[in-house]
Design a protein around this nucleic acid. Structure first.
Length: 618
RNA sequence: GCACCCAUAGCUCAGCUGGAUAGAGCGCUGCCCUCCGAAGGCAGAGGCCAAAGGUUCGAAUCCUUUUGGGUGCGCCA
């Protein structure tokens, strides 16, 4: 995968976090920065616990004469020992050939923790930190009322184009489209939340040989559709039927293939009859796609198709030929790529004079640079197109067509069924997205009916939200780069690590708030730090870091996992810290409510970013 | 043939720049609704991190090899 502009030699995606301006938040401050902050100062919690601690530790490392990079603090992987840890002393010891204990002693001497943390040096070379109750209550207060306060505003806002790696004409969306839709939407939300200026485009596959095939097939089965005056109905079901027939026939029947090629040429030359039919196909297909995208809650700045770039292809190729960037090779016009990697050249025009999608993709970049001048273009597209994008990115870079835009293939893996093969229905067909959503809706409805809380329109609306939550969270909780198994049975459970589990957590807290209010009890600032409250506060504190990480890696699952964890620790707290009932101190109860409110706010914000709605009741 | 990706609990997956006892969910075994919503909570069993070497004070993580899976490879997009 290419993380940046070709020719710059940055081929590892893990790298961009530290060097590109495309990140947000306070962490950047600690990357190799030098601090001149007064050594002694009472820290006010205007930031997260971990950021506050990081700042102190960085200062201490520098004051002790060590490089700041060794002072990296992170959430402890041993919650029984500490809340946060720093392992850098062993690094110091290594680079300076000194005893880590001595390095630890030096750092400990310089540490100014402002009463917020307790520090401890542990044997090989760990620094363990525990947040004080004071710090914990301040941390909750810092984000109370506005969970966004600690994490918005990018250091350097960028203009980012997100490409949804287009679905095609004449094909309904199926589960295979789920990933680009859900991951794409999650990324758009996250990037915008981080302060970036985001534009998006579907990049519909509405042109090319496939359309010629379809038209040829229609010529055979429904010639009436070509007649000018006829408004014969054309449905998605028709197209859905003809498309596979056409592509199958094209593989088997040479004569048909020829006709399809000719039809393609005729269409591209602007044949009136073909154009009229094509427009109808586009219309019907777009309506179907929009319906599915709407239901999923996906929105785009543009709904462009590849056909948009047709007029640009000739010019671009000509220009590249003149400049010598593109050459005639074996009858085709190609761009040879300047790279050490073994890559075939990018084909712009085939030996028959037809333009391929190599040319279209370059034209798309040119158009985007002209229209929006993005700093980044993210292609949320199946990983199988990796090599193609490597070619396109290299070609765009060495020809200068991409201007100042960094091109990135935000690849995702295949959705498989429980048999490990690409997801199919039990009947062996591809499951339509529409049907999947219906099935999840029905399952949620059934569950709601059993619960008996809701009825009528409210029940239907909640069923839709719950069904979608299950689908989206299932998708977003996986690393986009790996293949994953879509297990219908597991999705229908609605229990455990699922979207509905998190929705339920929110709904239940809202219900408690209402009951408490009716009893005259309102949330107050959190102050009663109970055993089960600690993990809640510490998890709340991780939000900004997780958002940042999700943005930097373009992986919404980091946020999804965080939201789940927060729901999990919140449920433990909820269970063990009652607020209503005999013998409960009203002050303590109000404090508990305060924490629950903070948790609820962040849960809802997180879900919102993931594109998941929370019903009022369920 | 060449290139890229993957291999962690019975199943599906986490595991951030190498660090202290590898974590979740499902499933399984117990427990908790006269008690704010049990779509919940608590506890337990379950792992030679595919194999073998190497680097390191330290490796699931980095390097090499092997095995087993997936994907792609100029005139489709």
């Amino acid at each position: 995968m290419l993380a940046g502009k070709p020719g710059q030699g940055n081929s590892g995606q893990a790298r961009f976090g530290a060097i590109c301006p495309f990140s947000l938040g306070p962490y950047l401050l600690y990357v190799g920065a030098t601090f001149q902050t007064p050594a002694k100062r009472q820290r006010a919690m205007k930031t997260t616990l971990i950021d506050s601690l990081q700042q102190s530790v960085t200062e201490a490392f520098e004051a002790a004469g060590f490089e700041a990079k060794f002072g990296a603090v992170r959430v402890s992987d041993r919650p029984d020992l500490a809340d946060f840890q720093c392992n850098g002393l062993m690094g110091v010891a290594k680079s300076r050939k000194m005893n880590p204990a001595l390095a630890g002693e030096a750092v400990m001497e310089k540490l100014e923790l402002g009463g917020l943390f307790e520090a401890e040096f542990v044997k090989p070379g760990f620094l363990n930190f525990r947040a004080t109750d004071n710090a914990l209550t301040q941390a909750v207060a810092a984000q109370a009322g506005d969970a966004r306060a600690l994490s918005d505003s990018a250091e350097k806002p960028a203009k980012i184009m997100v490409d949804y790696g287009g679905p095609n004409l004449a094909k309904e969306m199926h589960v295979g489209h789920l990933r680009s839709a859900i991951v794409g939407q999650g990324l758009i939300n996250l990037l915008a939340f981080a302060g970036h200026d985001v534009v998006s485009d579907v990049h519909l596959g509405d042109w090319g040989l496939q359309i010629g095939q379809l038209i040829s097939q229609i010529e055979e089965v429904r010639p009436d559709l070509f007649e000018e005056e006829v408004e014969a109905p054309l449905t998605m079901e028709n197209l859905q039927e003809w498309y596979p027939q056409a592509s199958a026939k094209s593989k088997a029947d040479e004569a048909f293939r020829d006709r399809a090629r000719k039809a393609t040429s005729a269409l591209q030359a602007g044949d009136a009859q073909y154009m009229r039919l094509w427009r109808r196909i586009v219309e019907v297909s777009k309506a179907s796609l929009r319906r599915d995208y709407d239901r999923l809650g996906c929105e785009f700045t543009y709904f462009h198709g590849e056909s948009r770039y047709q007029d640009m292809l000739g010019q671009i190729v000509e220009k590249l030929e003149k400049s010598g960037d593109a050459v005639l090779d074996d009858g085709a016009i190609v761009v040879h790529l300047q790279t050490d990697k073994k890559l075939p050249p990018l084909m712009l025009r085939n030996s028959n004079g037809g333009y391929g999608y190599g040319a279209t993709d370059l034209a798309t970049i040119v158009d985007r640079v002209e229209q929006d001048d993005p700093d980044y273009i993210l292609y949320v597209v199946d990983a199988r197109q990796k090599m193609h994008f490597q070619q396109v990115f290299l070609a765009a870079g060495q020809t200068g067509l991409s201007g100042g835009a960094q091109l990135e293939h935000t690849a995702f893996g295949t959705v498989n069924g429980t048999d490990g093969k690409p997801f199919k229905t039990r009947e062996g067909g591809v499951m339509r997205l529409h049907d999947l959503m219906d099935e999840m809706h029905a399952a949620a409805r059934k569950r709601l009916e059993e619960m008996g809380q809701l009825s009528g329109a409210e029940l239907e609306a909640a069923a839709e939200q719950i069904g979608l939550a299950a689908i989206k969270f299932g998708e977003l909780s996986h690393d986009r780069e790996s293949n994953y198994v879509f297990d219908m049975e597991q999705f229908l459970q609605f229990e455990g690590k699922t979207g509905p589990y998190i929705q339920y957590t929110c709904v239940r807290i809202a219900s408690l708030m209402q009951r408490a209010k009716a009893a005259g009890l309102l949330p107050a600032p959190f102050r009663d730090v109970t055993e089960n409250a600690r993990p809640v506060v510490l998890t709340l504190d991780e939000f900004a870091g997780k958002v940042q990480r999700a943005v930097e890696t373009r992986k919404p699952n980091h946020l999804a996992m965080h939201v789940y964890k927060l729901a999990n620790v919140t449920n433990s707290f909820y269970q063990s810290n009652r607020v209503l009932g005999e013998g409960i101190d009203p002050g303590v109860a109000a404090s508990h409510l305060g924490l629950l409110e903070a948790a609820s706010q962040q849960l809802r914000l997180g879900l919102d970013l993931l594109g998941i709605e929370v019903p009022a009741r369920m």
